[in-house]
Design a protein around this nucleic acid. Structure first.
Lengths: 197, 197, 197, 197
DNA sequence: AATGAATGAGCCTTCATTCAT
DNA sequence: CATGAATGAAGGCTCATTCAT
């Protein structure tokens, strides 16, 4: 059942952790469960990670790194794409997020805890939004960032992480949902970029 | 420390549960903690509630009931309010949500779990959005509901539940943030209602 | 569900306790369960009985009383019945036990605990066997009592309490089983009465 | 107090469980108590056994295995032993059971529960009686098995498990009791083997 | 006679973590 | 690297029992 020999147990542990945290939440997931799903001995997890917390943190950090790596290289001017290209650009972005939706879900769950100060959502948001602005780094207004965060960043995130449930609950086609979302997103968020300096 | 005799222990239990679930998440909150915070004996919680799950469920159900009760009464025509009234209407709505932000946070956390099928977020959304539409109940398109849910309903929810953290993290004034959000919300969501039949 | 108004709650409590103790054993039965089955408030049980233990004791005592009452009256000589009457006499005795099999099961379960000194089984045995001897109370030998207890008294008890399970397990007819048991009992136990003065 | 390092904690756990279950019954014995008596950490019990039930089950299975192992080897003809040998053969058998009397008590207690369908007593009986019959496996009548079970198998079991209490209660000598039981058993059960095909 | 509410102690089970190998 | 065994603490839940009414 548990394929051993894969060599990189550490990666398998992180994969398992990510999947399970996304499924049941961080604290509802036991280290035992992670070990079982990863097909490794429980103690090995503590060989690689100091803590259960170190697991989620490692996931977050790796994710952030990945985001930053994919962001910087593309130093090309990227001169305002024509209105017809926008849709496909955003679609591509959404698709990229989709491949990370497990981690995004975890991130969101943690963010809504009133108590803990796990501001990882914001840290990630800053990085991601800085990317989108690439070029005109001229500091924007507080209102602008709020606009970006709540109607751009978070809207995308919630769509990506809730799409499946949404479609299952209202029995609608995922592809159509993506189409609709692009319409909606462009109309409600994207087209208003200029109005919030 | 624990005030006895307060009479309605059941209510105190629910209050405590709500606060703690919002603080640390449902599964990270122990029944012991709830009991201590509520100032009651742990066993009493099981006298009133079959389960730990029954606690969160009860919170959800009470909330839904409350929402439905507050919705129906207003049978007034509510003829499209003037553009200047809109802002204060929405502001009021936001404020009302603010008083429920603990429960809203819990709801969101649970909704992002990929595994469990706790579709309470959707159940609540349906009720809440049906209210907003009051009057023209003509069935809308799938795209319309997606628009309402992701850029209207969820945007408000996330704003209400994350505002404090947002302000703390970016050290901005909560009142200003509300102001900005209203600007943004009206511009990005509200003004587009007609475009998505 | 729970028929109230029956008046004698105490009796209903004892009935319920007897049934449940026989089903799951004494310690595996909760006072809650007894209350629910009896259709009374849990606290009422403590109004009538000091303890959970008092329940089982009360059952035992009532049973013993009943046995003694049914025993003494029949002071008739009862001159050795003919061999053809014996069978029906024993059959009647078995049938009487059958109506008490719940209590008998409880008694047996308790008797096999090495730790507790609940010698109720022996107390009952003495009473029951003294009855059988009625008349010739001339003290018998230790070996005689052992014969009476293990191959007479206990054999009957175990048959009565295990018959149903036995028949279910080996899918045989209860009536046939009783027939067979009578054959066996008379041959193995009854016919040897004279050999163990 | 608790000797660590003993190596086979699992065996110690089972030993402790057996002793305590026999003393107080299965459900009246807490896992804590087992752990304490075994000198191991409570959690270790759950490392080896899925359940508290798994403990008793494991005891039963090990016992059954042991019985089957001790049964098969003796392939010797075992041609009807002379009447003088019988007594010592049965005595030996009784003695062997005596070393297992804890488990036998547990088994009996569980068997008398009307509710649960723990037919382990019957499973064991079948195995044990098949052994006694070894050789003439010709299927016997229902009456025969009833005879074997209630006046042979169960009589021995109850004697072994109740002897100590019996002697304590009637203050008689254990050795004498064994002697008497052998007399009684041979007379009432053994000598009638031929009468129940 | 009867009940709803309350409680402290205990139960079964699981947790995160460690250690010897 | 990797593992089986071990542990203290805690978790959810139930228990027998009591009390005010």
């Amino acid at each position: 059942m548990a394929r051993k020999s894969s060599g990189d147990s550490k990666a398998r542990i992180l994969e398992a952790a990510e999947a399970l945290f996304a499924e049941h939440g961080f604290s509802a997931t036991s280290v035992d469960a992670v070990a079982k799903k990863a097909g490794v001995n429980k103690a090995l997890i503590y060989y690689y990670f100091k803590d259960k917390n170190a697991l989620i943190q490692s996931l977050f950090e790796a994710f952030l790194q990945e985001v930053m790596d994919k962001v910087r290289p593309e130093g090309e001017p990227r001169g305002r794409p024509g209105p017809d290209q926008i849709r496909s650009i955003i679609a591509a972005e959404i698709q990229r997020m989709e491949s990370k939706k497990q981690l995004l879900s975890i991130m969101l769950m943690e963010a809504f805890k009133h108590g803990e100060h796990s501001d990882f959502l914001f840290t990630f948001a800053k990085t991601a939004m800085r990317h989108a602005q690439q070029g005109d780094e001229n500091s924007h207004s507080a209102r602008y960032w709020l606009f970006e965060f709540f109607t751009g960043f978070l809207a995308s995130l919630t769509f990506v992480t809730l799409k499946d449930k949404w479609c299952r609950h209202f029995s609608c086609d995922p592809d159509a949902a993506l189409d609709h979302f692009l319409d909606v997103f462009i109309t409600t968020h994207f087209q208003h970029h200029d109005e919030f300096d």
